[in-house]
Amino acid sequence: MMNIVENFDLFAPRLINKQELLSSGHRACSGCAEVLAVRLMCKALGENTVIASATGCMEIVSSMFPTTAWRVPWIHVAFENAAAVASGVEAGLKALRKKGKIDDRYIKVVGMAGDGGTMDIGFQALSGAMERGHDMMYVCFDNEAYMNTGIQRSSGTPMGASTTTAPAGKISSGQKTWKKNMPDIMVAHNVPYVATVCPSYPLDFIRKIEKAKSIKGPSYIHCFSVCPTGWRSPSHTAISMGRLAVETGVFPLFEVENGHYRVSPDMPKILKPIRDYFKPQGRFRHLTAEEIDLIQERVIIEHKKLMEKAKYLKTGNE
């Protein structure tokens, strides 16, 4: 059999858009899985895309004046309003297209932000934009803390993780709360399409972005984005760490289309123990066996809930 890596140019165009819409030369940390996810997202979306980005790592690394890494139209306004800006871009383009002031090609408008910009400070703007039914895709690049400002906790930080504002100490074990379940909150908005993705699974990732792109209405993508800098894990393990998050059930891959749940075929039948995923990460190093057991129990419960939803809320033809 031909070696796929050695013959990449032969195979890749069939699997993936060759165009680099996020150029190299950006300032992301080495081993950043988030910037890889953004690159894959752009490839899946293609050039007829407009992106509204929140303040955050991806904004800072890609747009230092007078340079830019973006080959698609891109706008950044502030931290908490990527969804609102995207909704305005969508409304503006819609009006201009209707009046014949721009050509009538279909343009996908995308809002993007980190976990803080989505789950915390940008939560209201996102809820509003999704509820209003704009034809836009929103992607949360979740690296589980405010990494751009220096690893402070967010509502996306997992239980037990040590961050600079919820640090592990003599009487504290880091984050004291369970991670906010954003995909379910978006499902509760009755948007036509919600999916979780991880760039460690590029084909699943691209398929879901393409699916979201095809939806004429709001869609929400929750992207698990490994951050070696913030998680205190080796930078060369960003991809394997993403796979471990999926294999342990910490971050399950699934999609919800018009309320119907479907678990990704990439999900294992039997979950690995979460300690396999916790072990290489400095942010979980302080956890005791009992604390890990507590989190393990929760991961299993959440996984069961998801499996039940997938069983009872599946699409008609499955």
Binding site: V50, V77, A84, V85, G88, V89, A91, G92
Partner: peptide, 24 residues
């Protein structure tokens, strides 16, 4: 015209910035 029923004034200004950026 597109009348966007935003959920706050912050989003009102954000949305008109987006629309104006798009050329509207």
């Amino acid at each position: 015209a597109e009348f966007v029923t935003v959920e706050s004034e912050h989003s009102a200004m954000s949305a008109v910035i987006g629309a104006s950026g798009a050329g509207a």
